[in-house]
Design a binder for these strands. Structure first.
Lengths: 198, 198, 198, 198
DNA sequence: TATGAATGAGCCTTCATTCAT
DNA sequence: TATGAATGAAGGCTCATTCAT
């Protein structure tokens, strides 16, 4: 792929992210995205075979970027508890600095459907959950964590982070670093081996 | 309002719920909803002034039904901890028996926007959070709960329940009753006054 | 026709006049007219076989009322010149006191068409012109008026009055009595036997 | 703008004129106009942002064409009386050769309203009146014309020309050149300084 | 590599009319 | 005498996509 190809595609993907984040999946037509990129509509058609193709590239790009930013932070932690905390902190840190990307990603994953009404990118949503599952199960095997249903916990952590985003979207003055520490504490208590006596 | 009016409106609202739950907000056109109800498109226009009007009635109907089913269970609990557990259990119980309604509700709340791109029903989403906030703060005042950021916890509980729904939607064999108990334990640990020594 | 019939029909006709005058022929739907009359749409359908039927009754009613108000004033004048002046004055006087009726009449006559695009009430517009033609030709026979094309003059007088209405509609502070006298003078000069030397 | 753009736009404008003139403003839907032009409905949407946009372009095109055809004839006349006569003659001459355009123009100006019910192009109707006003006032200043209300006279001349159009529309055998001379005489008599003795 | 032009399908809404009650 | 209910047709408009250049 030529340099110009790559640059154009990146530009269009960026415009799609911007548009979807700003006005939502539903109103983000190719015309709007083209307008955002200040190019003609057919340029998009030329570089992407489909609207779906474009959206898929957006999802891929954001997800891989996100993973790339998180991976080294996770691997630096020796314990499962440490990795769980790092997971929470790093995801919220990414969120804080890439809000439009994450909003766009969520919009697309939650809304883009095929002709039969099925969510096309539903599985992509599961990737971060799988990541978490691995961490949690390792912690349980190592005796760091108590015996919980790891799937429930993975879902809950994932959703908690989504909730932080929602909250931040509605109240931009929310301090995400503090929010992260609250969640770290919350999930430490929820996973710790030592239950408090009662 | 005449009997026939009430019946038709209920039928249309039900068809709208069914349609939105099945194929998502974005594809749920009046034509599809009318098709689902096996009536002509203009019957909807006759009974509702707008598509937005119809959606609003759907939101209202589901939310009030939901609240009504939850209220007595909450009020039966004397302690904040009990009310928190009851909140989790009753919401998941409602979910289990009214999945289409809740899916449709979420779809509409998360997607319906006005001409300026603002989510019209955003506030309706906040109602259950406010409910939770009250419970959590009461628990803190009474010394039942530790000193956490109540907003973070309220968001997290809300999101955890939504996560249960998502999980159940994707894997229908999920046992929501067990899921509920996992969450009850999780949030008991996360809120309890007695922190474990470390 | 029963009393109640007559009253209802009159009420509906009045509402139609009001509505057409207020928002124009194009937007004056049966629903709007019914709203103006504070009755249900089907009441109109019951009393008039058609929308066209209703409009026809409106035209008839306004035209006959107008003629009735003008006739005695014309017949009181012995000379053609007097009758021409009386015609101008009386039409503008009627206009001043029945603006909504006249506006509605004009809207309907100028806009209501059948399926083939033909103006249905075009002929009704010609009635006042015929009236004028008779006056002008009588004046020419009697030697009161110079030798002009009576059709041109009849059209011009008619249009001049319409112009007064338009002007008054746009600038309500226009004094129609003064306007009438200007027109009387104008058409006296234009019709008089004695041409000024030049 | 490309050649093809210009051509298509002109074609669509022409089709709109044809359609509006033939079946009136009210029935002139985009579908009908597209049918007249033998193109698909969405071609219109592609070249004009709106139905209103199209209508505006029609009004603009006809008015500027009309003005352009009249201007040199007016400026060739040294006296106000000459300009008034030239105004009458040239407008009727334009009418004779552009009847569909003028009919369409009038239909649109008299009927197109915004959402609040206001006639959108009302002001465009006033332009020819302003032109006339200038001529009449100049004639009065120069002592060529008697002391009349110039606004009344301007309206009356304008309406007289419209009357000629109406007449011609209904009776196509009307000789507009003769009609013009009748009006020239009429308004010469009506404006001349020398009143006939009486 | 880029794009202007065109299109058919579908969107929501309004409308005059019909019909059973 | 009145009307609530229903409907099909048509309205203007947006959309993703295709195609020739």
């Amino acid at each position: 792929m030529s340099f110009i190809q790559t640059a154009r595609r990146a530009q269009i993907i960026e415009a799609a992210i911007e548009t979807v984040a700003a006005i939502g999946y539903g109103q983000a037509s190719l015309a709007r995205i083209a307008g955002q990129a200040e190019i003609s509509k057919s340029v998009i058609s030329y570089h992407f075979s489909n609207k779906e193709d474009l959206l898929e590239k957006v999802v891929e790009q954001v997800l891989s970027d996100w993973n790339a930013s998180m991976r080294p932070l996770l691997e630096a932690e020796p314990t499962a508890a440490g990795r769980l905390a790092a997971y929470i902190r790093s995801r919220l840190a990414y969120l804080r600095e890439n809000r439009r990307r994450v909003v766009a990603l969520t919009e697309i994953i939650m809304n883009h459907r095929d002709a039969d009404g099925r969510l096309v990118f539903a599985e992509r949503d599961a990737e971060p959950v799988d990541e978490l599952l691995a961490i949690l199960r390792a912690g349980q095997s190592a005796g760091e964590f108590r015996a919980f249903d790891s799937m429930v916990l993975a879902m809950t952590v994932t959703q908690a982070l989504e909730g932080a985003m929602t909250r931040w979207a509605e109240q931009p003055e929310t301090d995400l670093a503090t929010y992260a520490e609250e969640l770290v504490t919350l999930f430490r208590l929820a996973t710790d081996t030592q239950e408090p006596e009662r």
